[in-house]
Design a protein around this nucleic acid. Sequence first.
DNA 1: ACGACTTTGTGCATGGCTTCACAAGAGCCT
DNA 2: AGGCTCTTGTGAAGCCATGCACAAAGTCGT
Lengths: 231, 231
Amino acid sequence: MGTVDVPEATVARLPQYLRALSVLAEAGLRTVSSEALAEAVGVGSAKLRKDLSHLGSYGTRGVGYDVTGLHRQIADRLGQATPWNVVIVGIGNLGHALAGYGGFADRGFRVVGLFDDGPQVVGEVVGGVRVRPLSELDRVVHPGETIGVLAVPAEHAQDVCDRLVAAGVRSVLNFAPAVLRVPDGVDVRKVDLASELQILAFHAQRRGVRGNVPARVPSLGPVTERVGEVV
Amino acid sequence: MGTVDVPEATVARLPQYLRALSVLAEAGLRTVSSEALAEAVGVGSAKLRKDLSHLGSYGTRGVGYDVTGLHRQIADRLGQATPWNVVIVGIGNLGHALAGYGGFADRGFRVVGLFDDGPQVVGEVVGGVRVRPLSELDRVVHPGETIGVLAVPAEHAQDVCDRLVAAGVRSVLNFAPAVLRVPDGVDVRKVDLASELQILAFHAQRRGVRGNVPARVPSLGPVTERVGEVV
DNA sequence: ACGACTTTGTGCATGGCTTCACAAGAGCCT
DNA sequence: AGGCTCTTGTGAAGCCATGCACAAAGTCGT
């Protein structure tokens, strides 16, 4: 059970569960109920249990889940048994930040290559890794084992993506606001920072006319608190 | 029609449509069919049409949509008639990059404030804006009109978020891998960079055993091309 | 050993989103 | 004017995901 069919929505939550479990483990907890874990992640407990059931994960009824056991199980599913190699292409503002971001190493990723064709950038060392020209992609990418991160301007995104794929990259995280065409068998995820703001703006716009704000949150007396996005 | 009930899934695609329309407009196109626009964004044409129908948008049958007209209509919906103010809290690696990111200004956002309590950072100027201590939040935030971007470590996220809300921020974009509790009426979106990589890793893991890669993409002869994520 | 209590795993109903398929409308050519 | 072609807008069907409610299964205390 749980070998093939894990729903996409569930997959998207697994990293959240994993992180929450790390925190609980460090706090010394040995077991955790679906209720408590769900609360920590901000989802419903039924959803959590169904998600875990897709993994074929076994908790113990009446007790809950073994924290470290469940952690290892999810980590295995995410391929975190050994760290993944990551190359970042485009060492501009964003690329710099990603190269220096500590959050990757903590979660099973190793930045093994930085690439840019700008003459001023090549040779610079960011986070202990030297920036190389794109022509050296093949020397660093292990086909199928390396995730490519695209942090180049939109107009170069497709071109650079093609070169990544040619070098053997099969998973791409794209920060450029552009649609990428990739051959069958290559997986692309897109993160568009401006879009996220625009989605927030849409809701803010609808909430009330700009500036016409219906009262500030009272600074004393706890409000009924909710998790996540509302209207 | 199209006043209240725009499905969330549709909202998430509006920024994509808007961007594609900008490109088409610059290319001099006057009208575009749902087929062509959908192709440019990488979605199905039926989905696009249904999305637009939720806006009450009128195209002309037999012809398509007026490019600039549709652009303005979507921009209005996203509240882009006048630019939104954005404050960024946490000027570390990521905050720096976001502060200097040109992509925001292009899409209707103005960075009006940078905040950090680190003594080395305060006073620094990034992208023409000076970094201030968090105590000055109130001076910059116009209640209800300002979007807050959280780029602080996870352990400070909740605390800083509370201060943003207290200052009148009602829309928060959270880059910290932490769950935020906010009062009713505040909208939070989360971007977790490591999670995105983990999701890619999951699919890569499932695709085949690590390193056991089933043949490289042939370098000559166009492959049947697909858009987006596969397998 | 047994009953009370706790918590998982899941069948089922509900709702939202996507996809298909097509009628209604708009232009164009003869 | 009439018919042809093109494209939109939308009913209807199907699919995926969420949430409820409860039986099965295990623990704990007596």
